[in-house]
């Protein structure tokens, strides 16, 4: 559905996107993950025919973004990062206007306008001026206009940025409902979002693709070490001494004490050597009370930091 080949974009000689290649199948949710300034927005603007690429090509539903720009634009719904709408129009009036621009006939327009307002939860503010809406509502109107023509491809640039936690959950829910047969490309700089929503993730930094995989694969590929926490009853000093006497640990980090007389550590060890039993036995033999031991899955966040720092080395 989306094929991007060696796409690059320079601004005044400086690369914002460099040699990016990826593709997305029909029905897939593809996550674009990267820190601010990574080139996510620029890539999306190229895909939506707002900016021309400096080199490389992209096709959406078989149409080239430069040669068949209108055909591409008929098939996409785009929500920009900073949703700017016409503040002097009402929600319903605005969506009707967008429907006309998207070339929808009057009957389809009035039906779809009602549907997307329901779907995006803006029906109750349909007669309010957009300029008077809260940020969360405006974001929804932004999604509503993208959905209006029932596009095959949805491109959402940081759809949850600037929303409160409740709104974030609602928008994520909505995106998941929307997927179905649609192809969705969404960008974010928040890690849990991609593992929650996406089938595939592209990690991008400084305009370059660092990896391109499923969230599960990324997680297992980078789980080179095992991380767990241990909670003990006893003194902090002797416990630290005991742990430092055990070989094969990559790091031991004291955490905040959960209560008086109790201590907690975050321990990282090599994956091939499971030291949990050994530590538990040693702790008990040395007179500590073992209160808890639990493993931590390496989060995408850790992987992300690891990848970005590896790249920089």
């Amino acid at each position: 559905m989306i094929e991007v080949t060696n796409l690059s974009k320079y601004f005044a000689g400086r690369p914002a996107v460099l040699d990016v290649t990826f593709s997305a199948e029909k029905g897939e949710i593809l996550g674009f993950l990267g820190p601010n300034g990574a080139g996510k927005t620029t890539t999306m603007r190229i895909l939506t025919c707002f900016l021309p690429p400096s080199s490389g090509s992209a096709r959406i539903a078989g149409y080239d973004i430069l040669e068949d720009s209108i055909e591409v634009r008929k098939r996409i719904g785009y929500m920009p990062e900073h949703v700017a709408l016409y503040n002097d129009l009402s929600v319903a009036g605005y969506l009707d206007f967008v429907g006309r621009l998207k070339g929808m006939a009057a009957s389809a327009r009035s039906r779809r306008t009602g549907e997307v307002m329901e779907e995006c939860g803006v029906f109750d503010v349909k007669d309010r001026l957009i300029g008077k809406l809260s940020r969360g509502y405006r974001q929804r109107v932004g999604i509503a206009q993208a959905l209006l023509n029932d596009p095959e491809v949805l491109i959402l640039d940081e759809p949850t940025v600037g929303l409160d936690p409740k709104q974030i959950i609602e928008i994520r829910e909505l995106i998941r409902e929307l997927s179905g047969s649609r192809t969705i490309v969404l960008s974010t700089h928040i890690l849990p979002e991609v593992s929650l929503l996406c089938q595939r993730v592209i990690i991008i930094n400084k305009g370059r693709v660092i990896t391109y995989d499923t969230p599960e694969n990324l997680q297992s590929h980078f789980r080179r070490s095992m991380v767990f926490t241990i909670e003990l009853r006893g003194g902090a000093e002797p416990a630290a001494r005991l742990l430092s006497s055990i070989d094969g640990l990559k790091s031991v980090v004291p955490l905040d004490a959960p209560a008086e007389g109790r201590i907690k550590f975050r321990i990282e060890s090599h994956e091939e050597r499971d030291v949990r039993e050994l530590i538990a036995r040693q702790a008990v033999e040395n007179g500590f009370g073992l209160l808890g031991l639990s493993t931590i899955d390496m989060s995408l966040e850790d992987i992300f930091v690891q990848l970005v720092t590896e790249e920089e080395q």
């Binding site: 025919c49 209108i70 055909e71 920009p80 900073h82 700017a84 967008v98 621009l101 998207k102 070339g103």
Partner: peptide, 17 residues
């Protein structure tokens, strides 16, 4: 300036419209 161009020019309309 306000950023509405970003949506306007990604709709399937020609510049002449």
């Amino acid at each position: 300036k306000s950023g509405t161009a970003e949506l306007l020019f990604t709709y399937p309309i020609s510049d002449w419209d």
